[in-house]
Amino acid sequence: MKLKRILAFIAVAGIFVAGIVGYVVYKKAFVSNTKFSQNEVFVNIPTNATFNEVKEILNPYLTNIDNFDFMASSRKYPQNIKAGRFLIKKGMSNFDIVRALRNNIPIRIAFNNQESIGNLAGRLASQTEPDSLAFVKAFTDPQFLTENEFTKETVLALFIPDTYEFYWNTSATKIADKMAKNYRRFWNNERKMKAMNKKLTPLEVSTLASIVQKETVKIDERPRVAGVYLNRLATGMPLQADPTIIYALKKQSGDFNQVIKRVLYDDLKIDSPYNTYINSGLPPAPITMPDISAIDAVLNAEKHDYYYFCASPSKPGYHAFAANFTQHQINAREYSQWVNKLGINR
């Protein structure tokens, strides 16, 4: 009888202990362990991160890092750490957090009209794991350039400003390859045929589009501006595009971040293959990364008799066009007077 009582006591004690253990395990596994106020946060886990590094990254967002450690170890996460960008939602338990850390979330990368590979590299590095140097190396790799028929000068045409989807930890080399595939997909047979009909190669279209891009921010005006330059090319007139002078000045100084609002007469004498005042035809490469609207503006340029244009003081953002030099002088004089009135010297 006494033995039965002892056994019964042990059984009850075991159930009690098991209950306590079960409760502790349940609390560590399934009770909320987040302490941020927003609905969700994204965390970036670097390539080859250790478990301790992961905990350091997560610590600001978790109520109890030791409980997370317990659950992660129980689910063998330290032996299977994934790099990438991961979504942690408010109220998640440690069980949910470990599961979330196995689901790499892609990011949408965007860049605009960069004037140099260095600037593009910096823009991409601010949104992904690879650093600027890795991007510059990938984009200027001799084999990469040869395979895609570009040089260090012309490769600007490869990168079409848009929004792209990658994983945060995608390598610079893989991003470069995807950009190249996108470029080849963009230049479909229809666009190639339009370029051919204008006696231009895709690279020449991108080069002219880069000038159009810089000349006007008004998308509806770009086909007309493109038409002016095509008229000039057809008759052998120099393009005399101020944006190419600005680019030449920046390239010569090595400072692509400087702001030049006004081209001066002395600037027109700069010794550069990008100076379209003293060199006929197109410059040797794009002066920026033209977006799709600028490229299509060249491919679908407006047909007209205009050979000149200058900024319009009466219609900000747009231009006044002229078919002859006399009218252009009148338009240019009005614009010059307006600029002087505003006190813009450079």
Rank of each mutant, 00 (worst) to 15 (best):
T128H: 03
R222I: 02
A49D: 11
K28R: 09
D291Q: 11
R75Y: 04
L7V: 12
R75S: 10
V298Q: 02
G281R: 13
L120A: 13
H319A: 02
S73M: 09
D255H: 08
Y183G: 00
R184E: 14
N59Y: 13
L124Q: 01
F325G: 03
F166A: 05
Y167D: 05
V136L: 01
E334Y: 01
H304Y: 06
P78R: 07
F309I: 11
E302H: 07
A234H: 05
G343D: 05
A157W: 13
A100M: 10
N103I: 14
E147F: 05
A100C: 12
A322Y: 11
N67Q: 14
Q337L: 14
P290D: 04
Y61E: 08
I287V: 09
N340D: 08
N279T: 10
D131W: 14
D162I: 01
A176Q: 02
N340L: 12
P238K: 09
Y335K: 06
N169I: 08
L62C: 03
A323P: 10
F51V: 11
S253L: 06
F256L: 07
Q213H: 07
C310S: 03
Q337V: 15
K261W: 11
K269F: 03
N231T: 09
Y318W: 15
L268I: 12
D305F: 01
N188V: 00
V17T: 15
N112G: 07
E56T: 10
F42P: 05
T326I: 09
K181G: 07
V217I: 15
R123N: 11
I295C: 03
F68T: 02
L133R: 13
N48C: 08
E204F: 01
A241Y: 00
N33E: 12
F16Y: 10
K192W: 00
K82S: 10
A18L: 08
Q252D: 12
T173C: 04
S293R: 14
E221Y: 00
I109Y: 04
L200R: 04
N169P: 06
N44S: 10
K4F: 11
K251R: 13
P106M: 05
N44F: 09
S32K: 10
K90I: 10
F150M: 14
A332Y: 08
D69E: 15
Y308P: 00
D96E: 07
F144V: 02
K218R: 12
Q337P: 04
T173R: 14
I260C: 15
N39A: 10
A49E: 06
V54Q: 06
T244A: 02
Q213R: 13
P130R: 09
K261V: 06
T276C: 05
E204Q: 10
F30Y: 15
N182H: 13
S314I: 15
I81S: 02
R102F: 05
A49I: 15
F135Q: 11
V24I: 08
S336Y: 13
Q213N: 11
Y23D: 06
K194C: 01
V25A: 02
Q327M: 08
T216I: 04
K261R: 12
A13W: 09
E302C: 09
Y265Q: 13
P130I: 14
I117N: 00
Q143V: 11
A125H: 05
P106C: 05
